[in-house]
Design a protein around this nucleic acid. Sequence first.
DNA 1: GGCAATCTTGCCCAATGGGCACATTCCTGT
DNA 2: ACAGGAATGTGCCCATTGGGCAAGATTGCC
Lengths: 199, 199
Amino acid sequence: MIEGLRERKRAATARALAEAAFDLAKERGLDGFVIEEVAEMAGYSRRTFANHYPCKEAAVASVAYAGIEAAADALEEVSEGRGLLDAVEVALRLQLTTTGLSRMREVLTLARANPSLEPHVYHVQHRMRLEVEERMVAVAAGRYPPSYVTLLVGAVYGMVSSALEGLVDVRLPGELPSRGAVEFDDFLTEVFKHLRNGF
Amino acid sequence: MIEGLRERKRAATARALAEAAFDLAKERGLDGFVIEEVAEMAGYSRRTFANHYPCKEAAVASVAYAGIEAAADALEEVSEGRGLLDAVEVALRLQLTTTGLSRMREVLTLARANPSLEPHVYHVQHRMRLEVEERMVAVAAGRYPPSYVTLLVGAVYGMVSSALEGLVDVRLPGELPSRGAVEFDDFLTEVFKHLRNGF
DNA sequence: GGCAATCTTGCCCAATGGGCACATTCCTGT
DNA sequence: ACAGGAATGTGCCCATTGGGCAAGATTGCC
């Protein structure tokens, strides 16, 4: 939050490079372009790309890292006076409906066609989970032990990850665009039912 | 199971290459060797390495893919006459005590020192999860709906993943070698308590 | 306003990935 | 049993890549 101009600019270049890589991957496929072209499209040099990402795949996958800020902010607001589970549910729904879900879906679709993307996609998922976990532990401090929060977040993300897997195949050109989101909503309800009551 | 000689040989080469890469990574660090050396140590050519793994990292991480067979076999045996949760618990404990846990721990420790390994480690974790999930769905067919099994496996692996993260730091030279395993056992008890009763 | 830390970039070269071709080994249908 | 077909290991080759180094530019701190 208190990040200076320097860090914001660095983040901006990284994002610009990632978006360029993502766009190129969508229109030409992951093997249809070289890093040089990504850099050029974003207005940077090949060398600068290498300063931010170790490879094309990491850049492309990184665009799925989205919605964390929204979720974290919401989490702090709603956590007052509610149980941890309720707070988590609100935050998670917010994160996914913002941009997180559609981006993740697009990236997973790309990964389906280009297996070399997979490791980086799951890495991004893992980093998001760790980020949320950390914030959650902080928010719940004093009310819930860290190990409890960690387990809870693990269970939530593990189950959500299942749903993401299935979401890739959904391809409904004639349906309402919101169809996927609606289904996903029901799915989340199911997830939290199990979290509250056990299996 | 009915795999012919061809597939067994292929798997053997892949394993030999992976073990060589893993050993080299342990003793020299991930950047302390080149693929050429891995191939040479395993008795194959550089070109053959590339036929099996896209990069050093993938080969090293792949050694953590262990214990699945043991778990799957156990799962089929114990699944008769028990609830799904009991069967899962038995199978998971078996997988982790075989070689899975120690290998994963070593690999995660390497990844801590070499971040470029991380994506591939999480990829392996994910593939193991999918493998178990698939077998589990088959075993539970007719008794539990696939979506239920999928969620259950997701929750289990999500929580276990938390524990693995914490396990890396554990370094107890003077303690019994089994200390880590014992702690992990208690942890699993905790996990299944939450699975049965909810949070 | 100036100093220190950080970022971008060009230059450079070893390491890498993957296409192609060929020999060898395994599998499958007859 | 055996011949054709498929998959694997390998050498050769070259475009792509990662990352060290140093110079020039930009930002934050005093």
